[in-house]
């Protein structure tokens, strides 16, 4: 009983969720990098991990409109879980990754109730507070976490019993890239589902969303938990590729950096985290050569400039949409403001 209009509708929806050649190209490039730059595999792993961390933040900031100043809490707990898991349970990385995901997800579920109520400000404070609480805890519980010295002596077995970590870090990079790719596929699926659509509605106008029968709280709990799970896996990857965890994984600057990464790449289209991670990591590598120790200053300057000049004017998402429209003759999407809610 398909009418022409419903066919148009279905075609439109399919097209919106379809893969673009640009996306495929990006992944091809990422894979090629494993073989093109044999001496830079550690840097590449760093990018992939940061990209995953920023992707997890994008799920809550870009899609649900929840600001967080403490996303490092989930990254850090994932990193510690992976370290402790490999020391005490099993050296198999995939099992450690799964354990980190579960623990971080549980923490996300438990703390999601803190971000349901209140304004942006109380959300900033509670997320910040939770991460500081964890950082303080990791520092104090030296018997478990090694305190300020961190956990060392982490030895990992081959991934799935087959792929050994090599000295140059190529296995580590391909492993991180594979995890990032799979999790991006899942995120893509979520964003283009009815659930993802309802999140967009809640973010844009929660009052109206409620008038469509959407109970916002449950949706926020679910996406916040998924986001925490993603961040936890990013943390686990960091531990597994560097064989080391220190309280630095929970530090405030990590929460701030990941916000910057996401904003550099653009909020709310999933690839912002990846693009931002590339820019940020290369920039940091370059700046710390030029002015070691003081690269924080330049990061700060970039943040200020980014905001003062205007995020949407520099938004890669818009640039990509423009390129895409040129290439494929489709209308360019307008950038999405962070929140259309009055307050």
């Amino acid at each position: 009983m398909s009418t022409p209009h419903s066919q148009i509708a279905a075609a439109f929806l399919r097209r919106k969720a379809a893969w673009s050649p640009l996306e495929a190209g990006l992944w091809g490039l990422a894979l090629a990098a494993a073989f093109l730059f044999p001496s830079q595999q550690l840097l590449l792993s760093e990018i992939a991990i940061l990209a995953l961390f920023a992707l997890s933040l994008d799920l809550i900031v870009g899609y649900a409109g929840i600001l967080s100043l403490g996303h490092a809490a989930f990254f850090g707990i994932g990193a510690y879980t992976a370290g402790l898991f490999s020391l005490h349970v099993s050296a198999e990385p995939l099992a450690g990754l799964a354990a980190s995901a579960v623990v971080a997800g549980l923490l996300g579920l438990a703390t999601s109730f803190l971000v349901l109520r209140g304004s942006d400000l109380t959300r900033l404070m509670t997320t910040f507070g939770v991460s500081m609480l964890l950082a303080e805890g990791a520092n104090q519980a030296a018997w478990l976490t090694g305190g300020a010295d961190g956990l060392s002596g982490i030895l990992l077995g081959p991934i799935a019993g087959t792929f050994d970590f090599d000295l140059w870090g190529r296995t580590g990079y391909l492993y991180s890239l594979a995890v990032l790719f799979i999790l991006l596929l899942v995120a893509r699926r979520i964003v283009h589902s009815p659930f993802g659509l309802s999140l967009k509605a809640i973010k844009r106008n929660s009052r109206r969303a409620a008038m469509l029968g959407i109970a916002p709280n449950r949706r926020i709990v679910v996406i916040y938990t998924i986001s925490a799970l993603y961040a936890g896996m990013a943390g686990a990857l960091l531990t597994q590729t560097t064989s080391f965890v220190s309280p630095d994984v929970l530090a405030f600057h990590r929460s701030a950096d990941v916000l910057l990464v996401l904003v550099l790449g653009g909020v709310g289209y999933l690839y912002g985290g990846i693009i931002g991670a590339v820019i940020f990591t290369l920039l940091r590598a370059w700046l710390s050569v030029v002015t070691p120790q003081y690269w924080m200053f330049w990061i700060g300057l970039i943040l200020v400039a980014l905001v003062v000049i205007g995020r949407d004017r520099l938004d890669p998402a818009r640039a990509i949409a423009l390129v895409r429209s040129r290439l494929l003759g489709r209308p360019a999407a307008k950038p999405v403001p962070l929140s259309e809610d009055g307050r």
């Binding site: 909020v267 700060g300 300057l301 905001v307 003062v308 403001p337």
Partner: peptide, 30 residues
């Protein structure tokens, strides 16, 4: 600077002021 951002989204204000803090911290260190 601040004046331009009174009406900006909170995310912008957060990023901007974190940027200032980072600059201040590194600048004083220098």
């Amino acid at each position: 600077l601040y004046r331009r951002l009174y009406a900006a989204p909170h995310l912008d204000q957060v990023l901007f002021s974190i940027g200032l803090v980072f600059m201040a911290v590194a600048g004083i260190d220098y």
